[in-house]
Write a protein that binds this DNA or RNA. Structure first.
Length: 858
RNA sequence: GCGGGCGUGGUGGAAUUGGUAGACACGCAAGACUUAAAAUCUUGUUCCUGUAUAGGAGUGCCGGUUCAAUUCCGGCCGCCCGCACCA
């Protein structure tokens, strides 16, 4: 008699058993080999979403699988709980960011636990816990002591109506999201982490990360952007100049293409270049040009996509080789943060320069001739040529290729004492100042006499005051009655406390070390314990973090190492990384353009209508689920309707983990049916030992064993290589084979025991229930991973496809160890082959042992 | 704009990484069971050639390398991620 699988009854029961047995607690002192499994911890938005379910289900598969393989597994969870949404909520709906945040944590923990993840909650913390940010401040001061922190001015988005700093995402089409005012750029004193100190190490370290996706390493390498180039001076045509209070002999530019120097037709300064700034003071036209540029925005994207804008300063420099004058422009696409903040424009061989030159009618002189082009007729149209070629129109460089031309040009400039070859990085230092309340206070004090003074360690934490309000825009810390007023720790005079808080990326740059090293109060973490667990063996998270979070963490672990807080010579926090794809869903909008939740949309004969209003709904792009677009599906509905195992199984089946998965209702039902199928199979079976090994099996029983071991081998390799969908397919096949098998013998017990243990990482509740039903010893969670008998994987015969001229015409079944000669003879004797090659001459027979036979005939 | 990735039946996807394209699943169709429905089971299901144990086409599009290309190379198209103050 089979009964329906009742997830609502079964799942809480096992969750209670696991909790009471405290089975997921990791032992720091275990003798077993250690395995640290970690998923990117969530921001407590208040609801879990399908992306969380997918992310944590993947990590859970790894954690449970490694446990079954005999590892001591650390699999912790916590909360990335500082950030803007809490402040936005306080502004929009009232309340306090702290209450909102901790309420959300409470609300999210329950459904997370309902999913049955093998998490060690004893190590839980939130980054907004005073105990955590106290240590965050401690780390900041240690970084300061080790010269990894400094202060400089940098630009921010300034909303002139709200008088507040805006995040990039709060600037929409150049306007403040609330006020609608045109956003300006404003210089502010800000704190920076010196990530560029490790630029080379961060780049070289990528080569050691053999369990990271290539694409992530490529993106990081490009982000660091190491380039060899030339930093050189273009001298003014009319001698040294006093600009402002400094004497300039010319202007310094950086270039990676000194081979194209003869193609230079102008010099372009950044709108933020020191010379530009001085000129702006003297000339209101320059100033208004700078103001225009400042409206574009601070992101590289905005600058790169904005129409090219230029201003001719009237200044001229001398070409170092020809002596010809070149005009000096100010151009909106030149970044102050990269190189020297000035370039020479070579329009023929750089697209941005070309766009600029065409707009302002500047010379375009090609100096690189592509292979096969004729020097006399070669001209540049609207596309710059950036490829390889032979230099021409370039006097002493003529005839060189790109690489040689670069070397020669650099030595020539060095000889002329106008510059030198340099290594440049695109990577900029990490600005961490945020003019916001809900973050970790930066532990420094500004004293009129002593300057910037760190808060003494004994005075930590600098706690966030609770009595704040969001009546007005801006940072409440800045207008708090007492927070700012402190005595200088050095001289004791009245001083001002720093009111900026740290970028929340700092919080998530070392949380994994605190998970491992404990909630210590005198140090960020226990050095020895944290160093024993680190690096994280398997990190799982979204591809959207490919650069920033992962790079910042790699910086932090190096900083912690060099401050003596962590024993991690490589500096690499994550030995293995997997970036999963996103959960996507179509966006629905009504006629007025309002977003509509999928749950409120009904499909009536192919027409989409709103459930309540009956209005027509339009299906839009399939994109990442996000609250703002309302294209979200609540996992709680799935868990309540079908159970946690079904939700987990669904997000892991079918789609390859690295790819985006589109949420569909139909897939859930399939997962639900499978769970029932497994339960039906097990509940109809009498008690039998799931740890059986049927070594005496013959005939059908032997066939089942072979099948089970082959499937098990593929299930295992699927998990090892993060292709859970292929493991799932093999589990389906094993289940189908077991359903067809009638006898209740040792072979069935073995295969069924394998099946139950194989599904355990995916559907832990169901597997415990099955394990208990069969009479398995202890918990399935503690059962070892099934061992595959290699001898059972070996086939004695193999079916080879027969191709004629690359087209399949038949197949033959031959012994696995057949010789090439015999295989060829059999292939040529095959009736289908004979029919196809009739009238043709066999030119060649290619035999790939165990794979294919291809006959080439004409 | 720049950097990175993805594209295979009606749908999600598989293909031991250059060797039988479409495993497995969803959906659909037919049948069995049932008073009936649900559930379950069986069979079929890339497209075209009116018949198929035969032939042809086919992995976004165009071209190339190879005995052999979903896989490698070049060029396009479409979509997604990131671009330093969203997390």
């Amino acid at each position: 008699m089979s009964e329906r699988y009742n997830a609502a009854n079964v799942e809480p029961r096992w969750q209670k058993v696991w909790a009471e047995g405290d089975v997921y607690r990791a032992d720091d002192n275990s003798e077993k080999p250690k395995f640290y499994a970690l998923e990117m911890f969530p921001y407590p938005s208040g609801r879990i979403h399908m992306g969380h379910v997918r992310n944590y289900a993947m990590g859970d598969v790894v954690a449970r699988y490694k446990k079954a393989q005999g590892f001591e597994v650390l699999h912790p969870m916590g909360w990335d709980s500082f950030g803007m949404p809490a402040e936005n909520a306080a502004i929009e709906i009232g309340g306090h960011p702290k209450d909102w945040t901790y309420g959300n944590i409470k609300a999210m923990k329950e459904p997370l636990n309902r999913l049955g993840f093998a998490l060690d909650w004893s190590r839980e913390f939130a980054t907004s816990d005073e105990a955590y940010y106290k240590q965050q401040q401690n780390v900041f001061l240690k970084f300061w002591d080790n010269d990894l922190v400094y202060r400089k001015t940098a630009k921010v988005n300034w909303d002139p109506v709200d008088n507040t700093v805006l995040a990039n995402e709060q600037v929409i089409d150049g306007k403040g999201w609330r006020s609608g005012a045109v956003v300006e750029q404003r210089d502010m004193d800000q704190w920076f982490f010196k990530i560029t100190h490790y630029a080379e190490e961060l780049l070289e370290g990528l080569e050691t990360l053999d369990r990271w996706p290539e694409k992530v390493k490529t993106m990081q390498a490009n982000w660091i952007g190491k380039s060899e180039g030339l930093e050189m001076r273009f001298k003014w045509v009319d001698g040294d100049k006093v600009i402002g209070d400094k004497i300039y002999t010319g202007t310094e530019v950086f270039t990676t293409r000194p081979d194209t120097l003869y193609g230079a037709s102008f010099i372009a300064l950044s709108p933020d270049h020191p010379i530009t700034k001085v000129l702006a003071k003297e000339n209101s036209e320059v100033e208004s040009f700078r103001v225009d540029c400042a409206k574009i925005g601070t992101t590289e994207e905005a600058i790169a996509t904005a129409p090219k804008l230029g201003f001719d300063t009237g200044l001229q420099v001398k070409h170092p080789f020809t002596g010809h004058p070149l005009p000096v422009w100010i151009a909106n696409f030149v970044l102050m943060g990269y190189g020297t903040g000035a370039i020479f424009g070579c329009p023929a061989h750089d697209q941005r320069d070309l766009d600029f030159a065409r707009k302002y009618d500047l010379d375009v002189t090609p100096v690189v001739l592509p292979d096969g082009e004729d020097a006399a007729n070669y001209a540049i149209g609207t596309e710059a040529y950036t490829g390889e070629g032979t230099l021409f129109n370039s006097e002493f460089l003529n005839g060189s290729n790109k690489t040689d031309g670069i070397t020669t040009a650099i030595s020539k400039i060095e000889e002329m004492d106008l510059g030198k070859g340099v290594t440049n990085y695109r990577l900029r230092d990490w600005g961490v100042s945020r003019q916001r309340y809900w973050g970790c206070p930066i532990p420094v004090i500004h004293c009129g006499d002593c300057g910037v003074v760190p808060v003494p360690e004994a005075d930590l934490p600098v706690a966030l005051p609770y009595d704040i309000n969001f009546d007005k825009p801006g940072n409440p810390l800045d207008r708090h009655p007492t927070f700012k007023d402190v005595d200088c720790p050095t001289c004791g005079k009245a001083a001002r406390r720093e009111t900026d808080t740290l970028d929340t990326f700092a919080d998530s740059s070392w949380y994994f070390a605190r998970f491992a090293g404990g909630n210590t109060d005198d140090a960020p973490f226990d050095k020895k314990i944290a160093s024993d667990w680190l690096p994280v063996d398997q990190y799982v998270g979204g591809i959207e973090h490919a650069v920033l979070h992962l790079l910042y963490s790699r910086f932090f672990t190096r900083g912690l190492r060099d401050c003596g807080l962590l024993d991690l010579p490589s500096g690499e926090p994550f030995a293995g990384l997997f970036t999963q794809g996103m959960v996507t869903h179509a966006v629905f909008t009504d006629a007025d353009g309002n977003f509509v939740m999928p749950a409120d949309v009904d499909d009536k004969d192919g027409k989409l209508i709103h459930l309540e209003t009956g209005k027509t709904i339009t299906k839009g792009d399939v994109i990442k689920m996000s609250k703002s677009k309302k294209n979200v599906v609540d996992p709680n509905d799935i868990i309540e309707g079908y159970g946690a195992d079904v939700a987990r199984w669904f997000v892991l089946s079918d789609s390859p983990p690295e790819r985006d998965v589109e949420w569909t209702e139909a897939g859930v039902i399939g997962a639900w049916r499978f769970a029932n199928k497994v339960w039906a199979l097990v509940s109809e079976t009498p008690k039998m030992n799931p740890m059986s090994v049927a070594t005496d099996a013959k005939d059908d029983a032997l066939e089942l064993r072979r099948f089970a071991h082959k499937a098990m081998a593929k299930i295992t390799s699927g998990i090892e290589s993060f292709r859970f969908n292929t493991s799932v397919a093999q589990i389906y096949e094993l289940t189908n084979a077991l359903k067809k098998y009638q006898a209740n013998d040792d072979a069935k017990a073995e295969a069924l025991g394998m099946l139950i243990r194989a599904i355990a990482p995916f559907m832990p509740h169901l597997s415990e229930e099955c394990w208990a039903h069969l009479g398995g010893e202890g918990l399935c969670y503690h059962a070892p991973w099934p061992a595959v008998d290699e001898n059972l994987l070996v086939e004695d015969s193999v079916t080879l496809p027969l191709q004629v001229n690359g087209k399949r015409r038949g197949e033959i079944t031959v012994p696995t160890d057949i010789s090439k000669e015999d295989a060829e003879k059999l292939a040529l004797a095959d009736p289908a082959v004979i029919r196809t090659i009739d009238g043709l001459t066999v030119r060649k027979v290619i035999v790939v042992p165990g794979r294919i036979i291809n006959i080439v005939a004409s």
